[in-house]
Design a protein around this nucleic acid. Sequence first.
DNA 1: TCCCAGGGGCCGA
DNA 2: TCGGCCCATGGG
Length: 218
Amino acid sequence: MVCHEIRQIYKKLYKEFGPQDWWPVIGNKTNSKFEIMIGTILTQNTSWKNVEKAIINLSKEKLISPIKIISSKKIKKCIHPAGYYNQKYNYLIELSRWYLKNKDKINQMKTKELKEELLSIKGVGPETADSIILYAFNRPVFVVDAYTKRFLERHKLIQRSEMSDYYAVQNIFHRCYSKLSQDEKVRIYKEYHALIVELGKRYCRKKPNCDNCPIKYM
DNA sequence: TCCCAGGGGCCGA
DNA sequence: TCGGCCCATGGG
């Protein structure tokens, strides 16, 4: 019952908003994987507009590489617009060190192993890890964020008590698309998460704006 | 002036 | 384990 609704909502949002084409890559496409990884840290509790400014600064200075992140003195200044720049600077260093050490092994890692590796990095929690796994490494995991929990709760698709359990929320989506191929899962998970973010920005805000919401009656 | 944004670490109960 | 606090800029 829940799955039927989850799949219908996806179709409705896609029809309404169109393809979101995530993750947005701003700088040189040859560094896109690492740029996505940086972006997942920078966007923690931060609007994407501010993250864009930071990534443009880094890109102009040609600093979107793990070695440059670790060695350049300009990083903090570049990421300043994204906020929390002291914390995020340290997180980016940790992430870069991990990437330099592991980048040749990642393709051989199973998804579960990759997840555990990412979670061992200071500054990488469940959402950030899953964003990296899905958008940088194209593995099928659903990314759960505050918008996801909010719209599920408002549509009574989860109990309030489940909201604090990241993996309970994630499993709802994994269950509903379990029969798809790996590639199809990756495609749907990427698109669905992006569509939920768009829904959250336009309609399912903290202060709800339900009047013209495309899934008002779903 | 206040609220909020594509979280996560840390600490005390 | 879990709630509360801290981190910070920029737009509405």
